[in-house]
Design a protein around this nucleic acid. Structure first.
Length: 487
RNA sequence: GGCGCCGUAGCCAAGUGGUAAGGCAGAGGUCUGCAAAACCUUUAUUCAGCGGUUCAAAUCCGCUCGGCGCCUCCA
């Protein structure tokens, strides 16, 4: 079953054929480190983490490079605001980015280079571009000449005339074409700078990604990813720089994830409608956020709201509850010879889970469908356990196979990384912190209610139950006695 | 103004030519003294609207309406 993926460059789903059999080079644009990351960054991170994991699961040896852009106008502005230097700002937000990504359960990329560690590479590429006639220096700045690259805008499928007609770019007399973009910027007094053939300055935005991808993955590699908003100008400019410098195709497959929206509008710094990752993680478990993101296809827009996250939490809990039931069944001896009605269906679903998962994932990483398949399997599992098949001898291999498959799938999606029983217990503990009644009081009321029930004094028994319910405590009657949970 | 995307049940969301996955919420059932929880079952003759192509359309084409994105920094 071959992997097919949607390539922004062709606008179609294509068969994935890596340049070198069995190996994949993947570059994903990281962040410009000048502020806290928001949910949009979390989506990009999680989506490409999932892709990274799935490629590995599919047997590829993956070199995954994700950069930090640690020199940029916004970083300098932020430093000026705080009266500090760019390095302090960059290092601070690299640290917070790493923290956020770790909390979200992201597998670390193979390499995480920083732009400022590749200034020499950047200068080399710019020199090549000048020699090739694709770039020109003027007053300490260097610009890329877009008119020298016939295929410019092939990724975003536009043309220069239309762009200029609706352009909101400021006119710069020194540019040959208003669309020309900076490869190197001369430094103003007080700004950080590096020595270059064109004087003291710093790299423009875009060139650092060409330099770092080329350094670690070569002039031509398999997959380049990032958010949809990077298609133009960032990735378009990367293509221009890299292909003009190297004279070969830069990237075979371009992958772009959709935005996170708030009320159907893009979440962004400029609109001010963003939630930082750490804000959201105060309210929801990291896996809930991951589950929420993976429930939509990676290219679709995704509306963030408290309500939607709560629904994701309920859905994830459904799976964890089923897994807890599965674990409990497996912990017991299989000594029951009585076959239950859904045994055959369970065996079929257990055997089919992984193939069906792969089929969904091979279709442009359709995690929404993959999770649907998982839920479908969970329903059968629940029925099987409800029928009392947990200790059945004949079904034990299917149950074990199911558990292994869920583990493997969870490993790809970055979900179910906690033991099911622990996850559920943790959620209960979280809720318990908001209790308005002491556990002692609850216990004594449970005892009193048990006595009332024994005496068939149901009025008193119900009164106790209602009182506790009003305090968010739900009594749970079981054959073994009464327990309680926070509602 | 240019380019592009989207519109599937109360909500979220898969599905790109073969007769509508899944989740949340709701309803019914099992259980229970009654409940709750849990579990099971169930919920779109129909895919924004209109027209066309086809044996066959949510899927392809055209138009209309509605929402959004990029064209400036942005994952």
């Amino acid at each position: 079953m071959p992997l097919r993926l949607y390539n922004t460059l062709s606008g179609e789903k294509e068969l994935f054929v890596p340049r070198v059999p069995g190996k994949v080079g993947m570059y994903v644009c990281g962040v410009t480190v000048y502020d806290l990351c928001h949910i949009g960054h979390a989506r990009a991170g999680i989506v490409f983490d999932m892709i990274y994991r799935y490629l590995q699961f599919a047997g590829y040896e993956v070199t995954y490079v994700r950069n930090y852009t640690d020199i940029d106008d916004k970083i300098i502005n932020r430093a000026n605001q705080e009266g500090t230097d760019y390095r302090t700002i960059a290092d601070r937000y690299i640290a917070t980015f790493d923290e956020d990504m770790d909390r979200l359960g992201m597998r670390r990329p193979t390499l995480e280079p920083k732009a400022t560690e590749h200034i020499d590479d950047i200068i080399t590429i710019i020199q090549q571009l000048i020699e090739n006639g694709h770039a020109y220096a003027t007053e300490g700045d260097v610009y890329f000449s877009v008119e020298t690259f016939g295929e410019y805008l092939k990724l975003s499928k536009r043309n220069l005339e239309d762009m200029q007609a609706g352009a909101r770019v400021e006119v710069d007399e020194r540019k040959r074409n208003p669309m020309d973009f900076a490869l190197w910027k001369s430094s103003k007094p007080g700004e950080p700078w590096w020595e270059s053939p064109w004087g003291q300055g710093r790299p423009g935005w875009h060139i650092e990604c060409s330099a770092m991808s080329m350094r670690f993955l070569g002039p031509s590699f398999d997959i380049h990813g990032g958010g949809k908003d990077l298609v133009f100008p960032h990735h378009e400019n990367e293509i221009a720089q890299s292909e003009c410098a190297n004279g070969c195709q830069f990237v075979k497959y371009w992958l772009h994830n959709g935005f996170v929206n708030i009320n159907s509008e893009k979440m962004s710094k400029s609109l001010g409608n963003f939630f930082s990752i750490r804000e959201v993680l105060q309210l929801f478990h990291p896996e809930v956020l991951r589950f929420f993101i993976l429930q939509a296809h990676y290219r679709s827009p995704l509306d963030y709201s408290d309500q939607n996250l709560r629904e994701a939490q309920a859905g994830l809990a459904r799976i964890y509850e089923a897994l807890a039931g599965l674990d409990a069944a497996l912990a017991e001896q299989a000594d029951d010879l009585q076959t239950v009605p859904s045994a055959a269906e369970l065996a079929e679903k257990a055997a089919g889970l992984e193939p069906r998962f792969r089929e969904a994932m091979d279709d442009d990483f359709n995690t929404a469908q993959a999770l649907g398949i998982l839920f479908d399997t969970v329903r059968t599992l629940n029925r099987f356990l409800a029928e009392g098949g947990g200790r059945n001898t004949e079904s034990r291999p299917a149950l074990e196979q199911l558990r292994r498959s869920v583990d493997r799938i969870g490993d790809v999606l970055g979900l179910f990384q906690t033991r099911a029983a622990d996850w559920l217990a943790e959620r209960e503990a979280e809720k318990s912190r908001q209790l308005t009644v002491t556990e002692q009081e609850i216990q004594s009321l449970i005892t009193e209610r048990a006595e009332a029930r024994k005496a068939k004094n149901f009025a008193r028994s119900d009164e106790i139950r209602d009182y506790l319910l009003a305090n968010n405590i739900q009594l749970v009657d079981t054959p073994q006695g009464t327990t309680w949970k926070v509602k």
